Amino acid sequence: MPGVTTLRLRPEDPADTGAVRRVLAAAFARPDVTTPPEVGLVDELRGSDAWVPELAMVAEYGGEVVGYALLTRVRVKSDDHVAPALALGPVAVAPHRRRIGLGTAVVQAAIEAATELGERLVVVLGDPAYYHRFGFGRADRMGLTSPWSGLGDPWQALVLPPATSGEGPPPRGEVLFPPPWSKV
Score class of each variant (00 low, 15 high):
Phe134Cys: 03
Pro162Glu: 12
Thr72Ser: 15
Ser165Asp: 15
Ala92Thr: 10
Ile111Ala: 01
Tyr131Met: 02
Pro154Arg: 06
Tyr61Val: 07
Val159Ser: 10
Val122Gly: 00
Thr164Met: 14
Pro95Met: 10
Pro179Gly: 11
Pro90Asn: 13
Ala109Met: 08
Arg172Cys: 12
Pro147Tyr: 10
Gly143Trp: 01
Leu121Pro: 02
Gly47Tyr: 01
His96Thr: 15
Gly101Arg: 10
Pro147Met: 07
Ala87Ile: 00
Gly166Asp: 13
Val93Pro: 05
Ala69Leu: 11
Arg138Lys: 06
Asp127Leu: 09
Gly118His: 08
Asp79Arg: 15
Leu45Gln: 05
Glu44His: 15
Glu174Pro: 06
Ala157Pro: 08
Tyr131Leu: 01
Val93Tyr: 03
Leu151Lys: 12
Ala163His: 11
Val66Tyr: 00
Leu151Met: 12
Gly137Arg: 12
Glu64Tyr: 03
Tyr131Arg: 00
Asp127Trp: 03
Trp51Cys: 15
Phe177Cys: 06
Asp140Trp: 12
Pro161Glu: 14
Leu102Asn: 03
Gly101Pro: 10
Glu54Lys: 12
Val82Lys: 07
Ala59Asp: 07
Ala110Tyr: 00
Gly152Glu: 12
Arg97Asp: 07
Ala157Thr: 05
Ala85Cys: 09
Gly126Ala: 04
Gly101Glu: 05
Val107His: 00
Tyr68Trp: 15
Tyr68Ile: 11
Gly173Cys: 11
Phe177His: 07
Glu119Thr: 02
Arg75Lys: 09
Tyr61Glu: 08
Val106Trp: 00
Arg99Val: 08
Met57Ser: 06
Gly143Phe: 02
Ser48Val: 09
Val175Gly: 03
Gly40Asp: 14
Gly40Tyr: 11
Pro178Met: 04
Phe177Ser: 04
Trp155Asp: 01
Ala85Asn: 02
Pro170Ile: 11
Trp148Leu: 14
Gly143Gln: 10
Gln156Ala: 04
Val91Glu: 12
Leu121Val: 09
Gly126Asn: 04
Pro170Ser: 10
Leu88Ala: 01
Val66His: 05
Thr115His: 07
Val66Leu: 04
Trp51Pro: 10
Leu176Asp: 13
Leu144Thr: 06
Gln156Phe: 00
Leu125Cys: 10
His81Leu: 13
Tyr131Thr: 00
Arg141Tyr: 01
Gly150Leu: 11
Glu64Gln: 11
Pro53Glu: 05
Ala69Arg: 09
Val93Thr: 10
Thr115Ile: 09
